[in-house]
Design a binder for these strands. Structure first.
Lengths: 214, 214
DNA sequence: CTGTACTCTTGATTTACATCATTTTTTTTG
DNA sequence: CAAAAAAAATGATGTAAATCAAGAGTACAG
């Protein structure tokens, strides 16, 4: 749980590199897609964090309370991945990361970036929970493929390493459903399976289309 | 998605404050509950990240590939919240955070801690997706209550700010299910509702018990 | 105020997936 | 290489929550 900074911590931030902003109910702190500028600590009030899903409707990600820090969603890519609205009159305290970063060695900048990525991936994992079993499995496979590709590995064939049961646990589905859906994908010639645990992506584009289709 | 460090980045880490560890398939890098020691970058192979849920069975959180960094789960509390197993022979590169931290000003240490918390909260949010509508709602209410309490606010009465629809979106439930379940909790005198959007927790202990019950 | 539009509630029906039950296949091991 | 154990496949059945539908309360705009 994202608990808080102590009042003391916030004071320290205040002294260092920040200033305060007043938000009226309904006002926006930052919007998804705009370029990353700062982290913010909520000083008073509450804000709502939302994200446009690909059907272009808003998913509610959560609400943040005083002492909690928002903005990590923008660190990894340099663009905010979410939108922040005040749901009551609120004060936020700006943490200008670029100023902070001047005093941070490169390694820990990288770490913060990674933390930001992990946070975004968590949001993604949650959004996957909203869709059908079929889409969840495809999502998982394409996510893996993408990560392999990004590292210079083969994106179209890879080891699963997980049993049907573990995969089900990961995707909140039963082992039976995983088995059935994977076989269905194979019958449809969208993927093929080698030795139960090895996946070949046969129709990457079609798989992607299934994900964006209603 | 938790993408990777570039090979270059890993080299930099190597030079600074790290050394490499070889893990055979099935070996454990760290266990849930043990005290935080380092972050690790996966250099080769793949590892599985799992977490014991309160029924004491293992939830699979995900797998990590080369270039990705693990261990953020231990930063916030000082205790790892997950367990890492190698699922094939793997090399990991230790990032001794305490050494890195000597060069980091206090503010950014705090930020990293917050990032760690956000990551853990994401895991928690995902685990909530596995339980019944009733438990999901109770979980949400108790999480909010806890966060208010932690900040010195009243833990037993607070504003929801979200509509039934938004709450449903947040918890992956329909607005109708939210309405029904909240009313049921009120009829059972576990909570009471003021003006639709304001919650009073009446039976904190009983609510907690419902969460741990099968 | 008074019409218009959300939000919430409540009931009836449907459905996607879980669960249960077997069988088949694969892996492990003595 | 058998025997035992674990994992996977597959069919039958059950169910929690979604969806559909309709009415009641509440907000708010002209």
């Amino acid at each position: 749980m994202p608990y808080g900074l102590s009042a003391n911590d916030i004071d320290k931030l205040d002294q260092s590199v920040s200033h305060t902003k007043l938000l009226q109910k309904g006002e926006t702190l930052y919007r998804q897609g705009t370029s990353f500028k700062s982290l913010y600590a909520v000083k008073s009030g509450s804000v709502k964090i939302t994200s446009l899903n690909q059907e272009a409707s808003e998913d509610v990600i959560g609400i943040y309370l005083p002492g909690e820090i928002i903005g990590f969603d923008g660190i990894a890519t340099g663009e905010y991945q979410c939108t922040i609205h005040a749901i009551e009159t609120s004060n936020v305290c700006e943490i200008n990361l670029s100023e902070v970063q001047e005093n941070i060695p490169g390694v820990s900048q990288q770490l913060l970036k990674h933390a930001g990525r992990a946070i975004n991936h968590g949001r993604y994992a949650r959004s996957v929970a909203k869709v059908s079993a079929r889409k969840r499995i495809i999502s998982f496979l394409l996510d893996l493929s993408d990560r392999y590709r990004h590292r210079g590995y083969l994106a179209t064939e890879f080891e699963l390493y997980l049993s049907r049961g573990e995969l089900g646990n990961l995707l909140n589905l039963s082992a039976e459903t995983i088995s059935r859906e994977i076989h269905k994908l194979e019958r449809e010639k969208l993927i093929s399976i080698v030795n139960k645990r090895r996946i070949q992506i046969k129709q990457m584009d079609q798989l992607k289309e299934i994900l964006i289709a209603p």
